[in-house]
């Protein structure tokens, strides 16, 4: 069976929308944990609401991914690089689940109420300092890992698009 040349439209749309959402969330998160600025609380409220949307988005994205035919990397890409690409992709899916879930659970463990657009959300954990410590650290370190992964991903994409020009970069752009 012939593999498609590009990712299906639904996956391309999800990829770029989530790229914008996740980058904004990361910038907001990394900034607000340091800032004493007056807009810090606004950013925090926005980060929590958008984080919940990112959780819904990754669920939808995983479903689309499992039901889609995706393009194969060209044979010119070495076995090592194929494996690296696989690991990066899996890493993204794992981290995009870990980030919102750890964020949600750390709020629970801190005893802070959560709501999405005024709708109260259930606490899945009791208030607990050790669990707060665990999920707060997971959230912080997973964010750094995600930043690293995004850098690797973008640099690799640019390498394919600008240097190798082998169609890999285009597969996430258009038909």
């Amino acid at each position: 069976m012939n593999k498609p040349q590009t990712y299906p439209l639904a996956m391309r749309v999800m990829h770029w929308l989530m790229a914008a959402l996740v980058l904004s969330l990361l910038f907001a998160g990394l900034t607000m944990v340091k800032s004493l600025g007056p807009w810090q609380q606004q950013l925090l409220a926005w980060h929590k609401a958008m984080g919940l949307i990112a959780l819904l988005a990754i669920v939808v994205r995983l479903i689309i991914r499992l039901r889609s035919e995706t393009p194969k990397l060209p044979d010119t890409v070495s076995k090592m690089q194929q494996l690296a690409a696989k690991i990066t992709q899996c890493g993204f899916y794992v981290l995009l689940f870990v980030m919102p879930l750890s964020g949600y659970l750390m709020q629970n463990a801190a005893g802070r109420p959560l709501s999405l657009f005024g709708l109260p959300l259930p606490a899945l954990l009791n208030t607990d300092l050790v669990l707060y410590g665990l999920f707060r650290e997971v959230h912080g370190w997973a964010a750094l890992l995600l930043v690293l992964l995004i850098v690797v991903h973008i640099v690799a994409a640019l390498y394919h698009g600008l240097i190798k020009q082998d169609g890999v970069f285009r597969s996430m752009l258009r038909k």
């Binding site: 990361l26 990394l30 900034t31 944990v33 340091k34 800032s35 600025g37 810090q40 930043v147 690293l148």
Partner: peptide, 10 residues
């Protein structure tokens, strides 16, 4: 990436 992790918000 380095800016976001280190400087932003300081």
């Amino acid at each position: 990436a380095v800016y976001a992790v280190t400087v932003s918000g300081r």
